[in-house]
């Protein structure tokens, strides 16, 4: 949790982005985006395919570093610390800013090992008992404990898609992050599993700053408090979710949420 109580307050941003530009080689994918992400809120990024919302999300924990030819300009801060500064340790950054991917991607290891892997590489647990506690609490918070407590030794890849995605969420929260980035976490799931993940996001909101990329506008409306609408690499509008969906200021936003295009 946050050491500084003020950071948890709505008005103090957890992450801030200022004038961010992203290039893939010659092509500019993100144009001059500035946005604040606050704790205890779910922020949804919506927009048509190829609008850059996933690209921007991957800037927030520097996952774009692994993409050849990707270049990020501008300033992104986590707790007022520049995450692209040379002094920033990427490994630590990604522990603090966790990520859940579009397709559930558990390691081909046991359920226990999937959750224990993060804490182990970051040295968060000394004794076996500590690790057991971390694994249990992460699985409980991900709402998976009752389903898997008797088969922790089974392979994580043998579960259903929805369970796999919750396992991935458990794996992310096991390292005790401050921000969780979710890149279309429900796009590969059926409606029941999707509902389960949405509930889970709502429960997790009190503890983490959550950023979710989604194609599904109903989902954005259901789970988020803030919504950012991206179009052609620019941030068109960023406001409270209720304001975006009931009273959008920009025409493009209005056209998109009413289904005119997208």
């Amino acid at each position: 949790m946050n050491q500084n109580p003020a950071i948890g307050h709505n008005s103090v941003p957890k992450m801030t982005a200022r004038n961010v530009n992203v290039f893939y080689g010659q092509k500019q994918a993100i144009k001059d985006v500035s946005i604040d992400v606050t704790s205890e809120h779910v922020t949804a990024f919506i927009g048509p395919s190829g609008c850059g919302k996933s690209t921007f999300l991957r800037c927030l924990n520097r996952m774009n570093d692994t993409v050849d030819g990707a270049r990020v300009e501008g300033r992104i801060e986590l707790d007022a610390q520049d995450i692209y500064a040379p002094a920033m340790d990427v490994v630590q950054l990604r522990a603090r800013v966790g990520m859940v991917f579009q397709k559930p991607n558990p390691f081909p290891k046991s359920i226990y090992e999937n959750v224990a892997y993060g804490p182990r590489i970051h040295g968060l647990a000394r004794a076996k008992a500590d690790m057991d506690n971390i694994v249990e609490s992460a699985l409980r918070r991900a709402g998976l404990w009752d389903e898997v407590k008797d088969r922790l030794g089974e392979s994580g890849t043998a579960m259903s898609g929805g369970q796999q995605q919750r396992l991935c969420i458990a794996r992310a929260i096991a390292v005790d992050p401050e921000v969780i980035l979710m890149d279309e976490p429900c796009s590969a799931l059926d409606p029941i599993a999707t509902a389960r993940i949405e509930e889970l996001i709502d429960e997790l909101r009190g503890r983490y700053a959550i950023v979710i990329v989604t194609h599904n506008m109903q989902q954005a409306a259901r789970v988020s408090q803030k919504t950012a609408f991206f179009h052609l690499g620019t941030l068109v509008e960023y406001d409270d979710t209720s304001a975006i969906f009931t009273n959008p200021k920009a025409t493009r936003t209005k056209d998109y949420i009413t289904g005119r295009y997208g």
Binding site: M63, Q92, R94, F107, A172, A174
Partner: peptide
């Protein structure tokens, strides 16, 4: 090896050498 496994490991803060040798 599927890129999603690399993403998963990098995403929870595994260093490049850990990704290579552990995954």
């Amino acid at each position: 090896v599927p890129p999603s496994i690399r993403d998963a490991a990098l995403g929870i803060g595994a260093s490049p050498i850990q990704v290579v040798f552990q995954h």
